[in-house]
Amino acid sequence: MNLRRLIVIGIPFTWLLLFFLVPFAIVIKISLSDPAIAIPPYSPTLELSGGWAGLKAFFSQLDFENFTFLTLDPLYYTAYLSSLKIATISTLLTLGVAFPMAYGMARAPEEWRATLMMLVILPFWTSFLIRVYSWMGILGKEGFLNMILLWLGIIDEPLTILNTNTAVYIGIVYTYLPFMILPIYSTLEKLDLSLIEAAEDLGCTRTSAFWLVTVPLSVPGVVAGCFLVFIPALGEFVIPSLLGGSDTLMIGKVLWEEFFSNRDWPVASAVAVILLAILIIPIILFQRNQQKQLEGDQ
């Protein structure tokens, strides 16, 4: 291996090791430490000057106390379960909204497609925080939606949507919609229309051709889209914090509060370690899926 190659590989490799992998090691270490009234607020801290004996003493002080604490307090496991539930339901809802849109885009006249594509991508470039915030003005008690519904006479009293789980679902579907549309659209666009014609020639009705040909061929895009929504939704913080209520339990919010309000670094780290353990399976599956598609394209 020559020096130049070593440098080209070495620079991004070292950066990711230092700023991505090492931090996780620290999180795991602190999740095994005890909280302390000190700076930094945990003990023990690693002192390399103590030599081998110091190292041994350091490891003997680590324990699983924080993890035991997480299983004892119902707040944490209900938060994990409720995050899983909210992420699953909103992924399915996003799929339900995104699939017809991606299908419509793929069937649109060719000269429209670039414009439609841009209309999907444009919100993606706009600030995430602002897009979530825009729903606060719509879903509130005196918001735009209630105003319209009252004016139309559909309801007599304003609905309470903001600060409930419904608002969280709407927020997740809204902000992650482009992530679901784009991969589905790219598989549907590549789909050979003559396959559907062939199915229809062979006696399929339009509906059964859709279910037997179009849907199975769109699976890679659907799978990629679902992972792209489910994984970030599970650890979501901004949406439950701005649109959810006090009873909306999501683990991202719990971690945030543990860190910023309670200043309990070891428990916050333990919460992060378990969240990561839950996420590692979908993340690996997602990477396998991407790898397979990459190899299929080549």
């Binding site: 700023f19 620290i26 602190i30 992972f227 650890g235 913080f237 991202g252 992060a272 993340i283």
Partner: peptide
Amino acid sequence: RFWGRTLFSGMAYAPLVMPDVILGLSLLLL
């Protein structure tokens, strides 16, 4: 091919889907 290639590609993709709260907390501790 090089030593640690799998690790490298894993690290290059993982931050795309890692929740912000975990990245934020771990970097702060570092």
